[in-house]
Design a protein around this nucleic acid. Structure first.
Lengths: 193, 193
DNA sequence: GGCTAAGGCTATTAGCCATAGCTTTGTGGG
DNA sequence: CCCACAAAGCTATGGCTAATAGCCTTAGCC
């Protein structure tokens, strides 16, 4: 039997395709193996930790992807335009890859270096954008948490289909963005523009 | 073998206890049956639809519980105090029952009458609180979505352990509440207090 | 040419959901 | 008082799943 030429990244690719097409619950080693053209146990040669390990790798990949998408969106921007660009990019990513986003754990398990790094990149991007507001140390943490809560809450509910009424979602997003930017402008310790 | 005196509600009780103690992933028919003192297949006599059906019943129960908790919190309050009471109660519920909240689907599957009713009760409570602001039809929908996004995002991330830094969570909640109440006060079409 | 390591495989175990079909229990009507 | 019947148990079975063990083959390098 010829070698399939697999490596961890390729396995994650197959897994992501599976998740995109059939949702997070369809992620089984058997299904991934079928896609890779390999028997299920063979995956253990490439992915340490079996299914749980695969999920971890997926989380790292997706978190990194998302973070880079955000960085790209804010490149060259500062202050309020950067914040809105970040928020819009966040929501766009979630809507473009709903299943992936839904599968994403919002916090790394303790001791997971790789995922921790990816999460740090993502959170760091938020802090970067907030830096222009000149908000102090501790207040910046509260502000970043707020940004994240709004971004995640809106993305998560959008994906879940919680917004059933006919009103336009982008309009909701506009309102939410005004709410956020207004709030940040008058944040405790923020330099007024 | 004596009868166990089970009914759908009792099965849900056991299931919730299990979820609270060991998390949503530990919810298996085998484990629920063990708690109920019954063999696994016997559960099918009480819960239509097997495991999926049980999950549905759990969602109805928890959504209803949460909604009632919110209604209790806002009883007799109006305007801004009602909003903050609702938001605080939401977060309290999530923190008191983190596993249940994490297991909660944020939208009912289409065609699920019971869960739809529970969700309507919950969303209706939000609209009720917003009514005092005198925001018009369509804008009220955007406002309610915003409230929900913030409540869910903050609860969800809190539970997931996404807020690792040492800053006090209640302080973040205070900032988020000011952000929300300020935003609602100046919402398009809101009557100024 | 042959050795070694990596990458496949099959077989097996254990746990899960779900269904089928049998047995027991409890209850209400004759 | 007892019998019939429905409700509520059970065991057995089948078909998933992950994961491990152990074997075989391929590829590449010395």
């Amino acid at each position: 039997m010829p070698r399939a030429g697999l490596n961890p990244d390729a396995v994650v690719d197959h897994a992501l395709a599976l998740i995109d097409e059939e949702g997070p619950d369809a992620l089984t080693l058997a299904a991934v193996a079928a896609r890779a053209g390999v028997a299920a146990p063979s995956l253990y040669k490439h992915v340490p930790g079996g299914l749980a390990g695969l999920r971890r790798l997926i989380a790292v990949r997706v978190t990194t992807d998302l973070a880079q998408e955000l960085r790209r969106a804010i490149a060259g921007k500062h202050g309020e335009p950067a914040v809105t660009a970040l928020m819009r990019a966040y929501h766009s990513y979630a809507m473009a890859h709903p299943q992936r986003y839904a599968a994403l754990p919002q916090a790394p398990l303790p001791g997971d270096e790789q995922l921790m790094d990816a999460a740090t990149l993502l959170v760091g991007t938020i802090f970067e954008v907030l830096a222009d507001y000149g908000i102090g140390e501790s207040e910046a943490v509260h502000a970043a948490r707020s940004v994240r809560a709004i971004a995640h809450g809106f993305a998560s509910l959008s994906i879940a289909g919680a917004f059933r009424l006919s009103e336009d979602l982008t309009e909701t997003q506009d309102r939410l963005l005004t709410l956020l930017t207004d709030g940040l402008r008058s944040w405790p310790g923020a330099k007024s523009a």
